[in-house]
Amino acid sequence: MPGTEPAEAEKPVFSARNLSIFARNGQKRIRIVSDVSFDIAHGEFFALVGESGSGKTMIARAIMRLLPRHMLEVEGELSFQGRPLADLPEAEMRKLRGGAISMIFQEPMTSLDPLMPIGRQIEETLEIHSDLGRKARLDRIKELLSEVRFAEPAKTAMLYPHELSGGMRQRAMIAMALANNPTLLIADEPTTALDVTIQREVMEIIYRLKEKHRLSVLFISHDLSLVHQYAETVGVLYGGVLMESGPEEKVIGRSAHPYTAALLNCVPRRRIGDERRSGIAGAVPSPLEWPPGCRFKDRCEYAGTDCAAGSIPIEERDGDWTIRCLRPLT
């Protein structure tokens, strides 16, 4: 493996090109994600941030093809290790899911089978995706559980989900997601339901595994502080549009898009005297009420009439930073 790394590092592990997603409801076709492009490199921690309704979870579902095509229609290109995901037959896709691409969700209790011990659930994914024998599988389960810091992996493997706390369940989910040495881990708000001290534990585990196995991570979150702490690359979504994307130190550190800057202004921190953080007026509109032109213009303090005129072009800077705005701040 080490010999192949330099070549692999050059081309992205995952790439989305002009991705649009439509939700179908009978005759209605609602656009929920518009023209989103981003790449995730080998061993990269990529964070998609956005408020509710920004389309971040829909992107994750589209990658995993978790919804049937008559409900979720995808336009544009999604490719994994150079293979287009859209045309992959379902049997091939099934091999990828839980294999090379795996996913962890916000609420581990709803993703685990309540009637099956943790070890047995991990074994199931091993049975499907690997040709390990029974003995090797049991060793692998113990190895995985100790990798996510269970002190007594053999004992933990015997436990049922209800016998674990929220943080332990999320760690068990991570162990299951890692069972078949994935290349890409999609983590959809994995710590939102957890206490901060547990959140830190889980984040440290994900980060350590990324470093150790050069895992690519697509991290979906609404928490900018968390993203600032762990992500290398950040994409900011609003109304299904990628407003700004690039290295963390540029997007969060020197935000050029007024939405990114406004979002950072919503993060609470200590006030001095009567100071107020400005926040953002109004609320996130529903996909049925998105304005023409820039989706953010009605809440943006810099917006002008031209912002409503039509689709906003993407500005590229330094080859790694994109901004979708007519009036960037910097």
Binding site: H222, P268, A283
Partner: peptide, 14 residues
């Protein structure tokens, strides 16, 4: 609440 709305409510409480 979403972060943008959270800040509105916090400011209103103040």
């Amino acid at each position: 609440l979403d972060v943008s709305v959270q800040m509105q409510i916090l400011n209103m409480l103040l």
